[in-house]
Amino acid sequence: MIINGVAIDETFAEAFGMRATRLIITAANLRWAHHAANAATGFATSVIGCGAEAGIERELSPDETPDGRPGVSVLVFAVSGKELAKQVERRVGQCVLTSPTSAVFSGCDGEEKIALGKNLRYFGDGYQISKLFGNRRYWRVPVMDGEFVCEETTGVVKAVGGGNFLVLAASQMQALLACEAAIDTMRKLPGVVMPFPGGVVRSGSKVGSKYKALSASTNDAFCPTLRGIGNSELSPETGAVLEIVIDGITEADIRQAMRAGMQAVCSIGAGGGIQRITAGNYGGKLGKYHFHLREILA
């Protein structure tokens, strides 16, 4: 399959089952909602080293938030409900509670619940106040700019992590520009986050390493500077490879985001130095979800 001069490999992205939640972070204005959300989703690129993968899903207008203030929705993914609970509590406690004017609510009604403000309330040292409106319990924690309001729990849903595609281009900047275009399109879609910096990752990895202590190491087959050694997957014309990793609430969300992203890359096409799109997998034996590139673009 070739689209606008870009070869689409006959391969698939291999993704895994995860647990996820959506948080709604509001503040006096969007600037401060973003400050809180950026901090809470920082250092959350990969579960391997960060414990969670997270990102901002989209901005919310005042009529979309529980408190009628501007906000952002954030998706947090982890390998288990227990790890997710730990990450959410730590991230909200250190990054949202601390951020001026912020409040945080559940944006997800899963059957399984994890603590959101349930334990953070103890920061109030006995001055915290519970308010039960309908079936939602909120905590009011006195802080130095007034009150931090947070919902007691948030729902957990089954989700999918690790959807991906790789963009092979003639040069580093051409690969980067194509990925930027893809991310700009993908960020408009609900239910997904691209957890790496700017949504793009340059250090794709393979399983294992020559060093026993490491479980993953550089994806040497796609490193242009190693083209002449061993099992390179790159042709002599390929100057750089960048990857976009996608975590989504559902398989369909990831499929939709991959399609939109790859179409954006293909629309730049061979004229923009884009040569090929491929995907990362582990032979299909580890991940439950397989996203075949040609099927998605068909």
Partner: peptide, 10 residues
């Protein structure tokens, strides 16, 4: 107090 907004909406 922002919680009054939650109360009003409820």
């Amino acid at each position: 107090l922002m919680f009054l907004r939650l109360f009003a909406r409820h």
